[in-house]
């Protein structure tokens, strides 16, 4: 554990909490892509199956359980409890275009052709693109509430901080995992345009509004 990974994990946790609290307090999931949240639930489920086979640390187990539970709670709020506020007319990204290629790629490029390992690889590939339905929704409506922007910033920062963690681990522990690194770079790059808007607009107190 190093400072980059810890802050990355905390940033990830913060993102998930911001989203849950936002939906709960406003009693609304307007502006949130249910599809991205379904993809994240699928990501955590397929990645953390090793909870039953491999023990790493209490921290690791605890965080995995939190991520799984929080993602299912978010999906429940969007598709059940606050269904009436769900923006399904704008949430039209075709998720099969993300799920199927991620799955095929995980069969082709993986560390080991074993069920748990392929599901882990699939989750890494899928996570890297799982935010696309959300970014698509923001681009379709042309704007995002500040709280949604804070959520996206915290979620994007998490993988960016993991990149620093991987650089650190490469030098300090000679440890690296190319699959995670390449997918992590892709994931972080997808947020770059959003990061730019966040710094230039949201932090200056303006609403995130895309040019018409």
């Amino acid at each position: 554990m190093n400072i980059f990974r810890l802050t990355g994990d905390l940033s990830h946790l913060l993102a998930i909490i911001i989203l849950l609290v936002k939906i709960w307090k406003t009693r609304s999931c307007a502006g949130i892509s249910g599809k991205s949240q379904l993809l994240f639930a699928l990501v955590y489920t397929t990645r953390y199956l090793d909870l039953v086979s491999t023990y790493i640390s209490a921290y690791n187990t605890f965080m995995k359980l939190i991520f799984i539970c929080a993602s299912y709670a978010t999906v429940y709020l969007i598709y059940m409890k606050f269904k009436a506020t769900y923006d399904h007319n704008h949430d039209t990204f075709r998720v099969e275009f993300l799920i199927l290629p991620s799955f095929v790629l995980s069969l082709l490029i993986n560390h080991d052709f074993a069920v748990l390992e392929i599901l882990w690889t699939f989750s890494i590939y899928l996570e890297s693109v799982a935010i696309l339905p959300q970014l698509f929704l923001v681009s379709k409506t042309g704007e995002a509430e500040s709280i949604t922007s804070h959520y996206l910033f915290a979620l994007g920062s998490y993988r960016g901080l993991y990149l620093l963690n991987w650089i650190y681990r490469y030098y300090a522990e000679s440890h690296y995992d190319l699959i995670a690194i390449v997918a992590g770079v892709v994931q972080t790059v997808l947020y770059c345009d959003f990061f730019y808007l966040y710094v230039t607009k949201v932090l200056k107190g303006k609403k995130l509004q895309l040019p018409a």
Binding site: R5, M63, K64, F67, H111, D112, S174, D177, L178, I179
Partner: peptide, 10 residues
């Protein structure tokens, strides 16, 4: 070492 079946990150 690259790759191991034990993924210790989240």
């Amino acid at each position: 070492k690259s790759s191991s079946n034990k993924h210790d990150e989240l």
